[in-house]
Design a protein around this nucleic acid. Structure first.
Length: 258
DNA sequence: ATGGCAATGTTTCATTGA
């Protein structure tokens, strides 16, 4: 089974690319972030025509998450939002797909360390940490995929000195990420040997992509019973190339079927 | 081989992203 996650930075702008990517990569499940579209306007028809069921929690302009599941897969218990956390922002949706609980998350950006948005980011992460503990207690087979807006350590940063203490690299953000892992999850990317300087996001400005000035901030976390089933984890850098790319590349894992 | 911000709506600038 193949599961992927992709921050598309506007589903409307990226719809043609998404359909192409689905055809080339053939994932069973795809988690999307930053759809930036309200539910009533979600492009359900072209995604269904591409062979997928889709479950979404969106809003106008900002945020928005969705889970795509190949047609025919059993999907139950679709729940948007974070447990015990009232939030206008559509940043999390969960569904059980073919017996695996899938949580699609878009962690807040945080803008600047110690800003109001930064405090919201940390508060949101704290609530999600509790949510994940609940979810793991109920669902031993759990995947958390999304844009975490945290580079877990300096290997995940093109220039660690430049980014030291900055947004996505601050101690508190990295501690929040580690707290997700402490709940009983692993970073699937680090289960495998990876090329140095592998990133998932590059700024649109200053030739960041051709110079590979990026960060690894998109992640797929697996509960411990899924570790042995994980065959690969890679980031599809090719999706960042060409005309009108998202600033994020997709990340994919392959799981052995049991 | 990649490309020099992009997307949105408040629309000809401001806001946000990361």
């Amino acid at each position: 089974m193949k599961l992927a996650s992709w921050n598309v930075n506007s589903l409307n702008m990226r719809l043609a690319r998404l359909i192409d990517w689905l055809a080339s990569n053939d994932p069973d499940i795809l988690c999307l972030q930053e759809t930036k579209i309200e539910d009533a306007k979600f492009p359900v028809a072209p995604i269904e025509a591409a062979g997928y069921q889709v479950f979404h929690a969106g809003q106008r302009t900002y945020n928005g998450v969705a889970i795509l599941a190949r047609r025919g897969l059993d999907v139950v218990d679709i729940v948007p939002g974070v447990d015990d956390f009232v939030d206008e922002q559509k940043r999390l949706i969960a569904a059980t797909v073919a017996g695996i609980r899938v949580i699609c998350a878009y962690v807040p950006n945080g803008q600047v360390v110690d800003s109001e948005k930064y405090r919201y980011k940390l508060t949101w992460c704290e609530a999600v940490g509790a949510h994940l503990k609940n979810a793991l207690a109920r669902h031993p087979l759990l995947i958390v995929a999304g844009d975490f807006n945290v580079a877990p350590d300096d290997r995940d940063v093109h220039d660690p000195a430049l980014w030291a203490g900055q947004i996505m690299c601050s101690d508190a953000e990295r501690a929040a990420f580690r707290s997700f892992l402490a709940a009983g999850l692993v970073d699937s990317f680090r289960l495998f040997d990876q090329a140095p300087k592998t990133f998932s996001w590059w700024d649109y400005r200053q030739l960041a992509f051709p110079k590979n000035c990026g960060l690894r901030i998109d992640h797929i976390l697996l509960s411990t019973p899924l570790i042995d089933r994980c065959l690969s984890c890679r980031i599809d850098r090719n999706a960042r190339k060409g005309q009108k790319p998202s600033d994020h590349a997709p990340i994919l894992v392959e799981l052995r079927d049991d």
